[in-house]
Design a protein around this nucleic acid. Structure first.
Length: 321
DNA sequence: AAGACGAAAGTGGTTGA
DNA sequence: TCAACAACTTTCGTCTT
C-alpha cells in the first residue's frame, strides 16, 4: 500500500508527450498517477499537478466562461415529462378532421394509436434524459477520477430515481451528482460531498437535498461513513507507509468501540489518527499537511487528535528536549 | 521562522417545539 | 417556521522548537 505508484505510462497518456510538465512547485519531473484520486501529483513535494484536468479533450471544453454560458443554457432544469410546444398529440375526441363522428372500428383504432403514441413519448423522453444524464455522469466521473464500477452503480441509481419520477423539477446534474455520491458511499470510495458538488452548477445544497431524497425514496441502504475508509486515502496522499496507515486504522477502531466517533467528521477523525500514527512511527507530518490531505482544517485535526490521545490514553513519543 | 496550541467569534446544517 | 445546538471553520495571539 505504501509502495509508490509510479506509472509513467498513464501520465503520458493523460498528457501528450510534449506536454508532460515538470512539477510547477519544485521542478521535479517525477510525476506519479494516483489511481485512487485520479490525479497526477508530484512524487517529490506532493503538489497536485493535474487535478481535474484529466479530460481536456475538445469534446466538452467548458473551461472558459463563454463555453460555460452555452452549456448552462442547455443544461437548465429539464422536466422531460412535460411535452414541449412541438409535441404532437392525438386528439381524444373521436372526430375526423372535418368534425364527423368516426365509425366504431376507427374509434378502436384511434384508441390504440393514442396509447402507442403516449408510450413512445414516455419511452423516448426517458431515453433522452438518460443519455443526457450519461454525459453528465461521464464528465463528473472523469473529473473526479472515479472507477468504472462506481459510475455504473451511479447510473443504476439514477435510472431508478428517474423511473419513479424523482428527477422531475430538479436538474439532471444535481440528481446525477447525488447518485454518484450515493454510489461512492455504497462502494466505500471516499469522496466528500464538497468534492462532487464542486463540479456541478447545482450547489452543494442542491446535491445534498437530492441525495437525502434519494435515500428516502429509493430504499437505498448506504452504510454510515466510517473514518476507517478515509485513512488509506489520506495516507496515500501523504506517502506514509502501510504500517502507519494500519496503526491509524487500529486507533480508529478503538475509538469507535469507545463510541467517541459519533457525529464527528469522519475525515477529521481519520486525519487525526493518521497524524498520531505518523508521529509514533517517526514519519512526521505537520498538522497542516495532514489537514490539507484530509480536506479539513488544522484546528479540527488538532481537536480530534487531542481528544483521541486523551480518551485512548495514547502516549506520544516525547519530542527530544 | 515555522509549527503547535487554544480561545473566540462566525458559519451551515440538524433537530425539536 | 423558528430558535437552540453541536460540529466545523476562520482568525488571531501566544508559546515552543
Amino acid at each position: 500500500m505504501g509502495e509508490e505508484v509510479v506509472d509513467r505510462e498513464i501520465v503520458e497518456r493523460l498528457y501528450p508527450i510534449e506536454e508532460v510538465r515538470e512539477c510547477p512547485q519544485c521542478g521535479s519531473d517525477k510525476l506519479i498517477y494516483d489511481p485512487v484520486r485520479g490525479e497526477i501529483i508530484c512524487a517529490v513535494c506532493g503538489y497536485v499537478v493535474s487535478e481535474r484536468e484529466i479530460d481536456k479533450g475538445p469534446e466538452w471544453r467548458a473551461f472558459d466562461s463563454e463555453e460555460r454560458e452555452k452549456r448552462s443554457r442547455v443544461g437548465a432544469p429539464i422536466t422531460r415529462y412535460t411535452p414541449d410546444a412541438l409535441a404532437t398529440d392525438i386528439d381524444w375526441r373521436s372526430k375526423d378532421a372535418a368534425g364527423r363522428e368516426l365509425g366504431l372500428r376507427k374509434k378502436v383504432e384511434m384508441f390504440r394509436l393514442r396509447r402507442w403514441h403516449m408510450r413512445a413519448r414516455v419511452q423516448s423522453s426517458l431515453e433522452r434524459n438518460l443519455s443526457q444524464a450519461q454525459q453528465e455522469l461521464d464528465r463528473l466521473g472523469a473529473q473526479l477520477g472515479l472507477p468504472k464500477r462506481v459510475l455504473d452503480r451511479a447510473r443504476e441509481i439514477y435510472r431508478r430515481a428517474l423511473e419513479i419520477g424523482l428527477v422531475r423539477g430538479r436538474s439532471i446534474e444535481s440528481v446525477i451528482a447525488a447518485a454518484i455520491y450515493a454510489a461512492c458511499r455504497e462502494m466505500k470510495v471516499p469522496r466528500t460531498l464538497d468534492e462532487i458538488a464542486r463540479f456541478t452548477r447545482a450547489g452543494r445544497k442542491d446535491v445534498a437535498r437530492c441525495y437525502r431524497l434519494l435515500l428516502r425514496e429509493t430504499s437505498l441502504k448506504v452504510p454510515l461513513p466510517s473514518p476507517i475508509d478515509f485513512a488509506p486515502r489520506i495516507g496515500n496522499v501523504l506517502k506514509l507507509s502501510a504500517a502507519t496507515v494500519r496503526d491509524a486504522i487500529d486507533i480508529l477502531k478503538r475509538a469507535q468501540q469507545l463510541g467517541i466517533t459519533a457525529g464527528k467528521d469522519p475525515a477529521g477523525l481519520a486525519a487525526a489518527a493518521i497524524y498520531i500514527a505518523a508521529l509514533k512511527r517517526g514519519e512526521v507530518r505537520t498538522q497542516k499537511e495532514v489537514a490539507r490531505a484530509a480536506q479539513v482544517t488544522e484546528v479540527t485535526v488538532r481537536n480530534r487528535y487531542k481528544e483521541l490521545v486523551k480518551k485512548l490514553k495514547i502516549d506520544l513519543p516525547v519530542k527530544k528536549s
